[in-house]
């Protein structure tokens, strides 16, 4: 197996994740898309680990999984907060950034 097949797979996954982040209106779905991105990263890490024949890649993948869990937790909490305040989790209506 060549390294690139994993990396390219990850690249597609990453791009799909980005697409999701950019297009989905539902906050939960946006978070899910973020998970895709993180997964793509994980695949890369593991693939590089295998390529280099060491375990650093695996170690970091595990860390990423942990961080992802934390991120989902906080993210979902924010979505909940948003839902509670606005009765909607439509990201396309989020315009607080406009100031």
């Amino acid at each position: 197996m060549i390294l690139n097949q994993f990396l390219l797979l990850a690249a597609v996954l990453f791009s799909l994740g980005v697409y999701g982040v950019l297009t989905r209106r539902n906050g939960v779905l946006v978070l899910m898309s973020v998970e895709l991105i993180l997964n793509a990263v994980n695949i890369n890490l593991v693939a590089f680990g295998a390529f280099q024949d060491n375990v650093q890649g695996d170690v970091f993948a595990v860390f990423v999984i942990a961080v992802a869990a934390a991120e989902v937790g906080v993210g979902l909490a924010m979505v909940l907060l948003m839902y509670r305040n606005r009765k909607s989790i439509d990201f396309s209506e989020v315009d607080m950034m406009r100031g």
């Binding site: 295998a50 999984i65 909940l80």
Partner: peptide, 30 residues
């Protein structure tokens, strides 16, 4: 890729925990 530990973690943490979190999120936000 030979990283069965990571694979296992993935299944446990992600599928086992994070997805459940998501489903909670979906349901809570109605």
């Amino acid at each position: 890729l030979g990283s069965d530990f990571v694979g296992a973690t993935q299944i446990l943490v992600y599928i086992g925990a994070i997805i459940v979190l998501f489903l909670f999120g979906i349901m809570l936000t109605k």
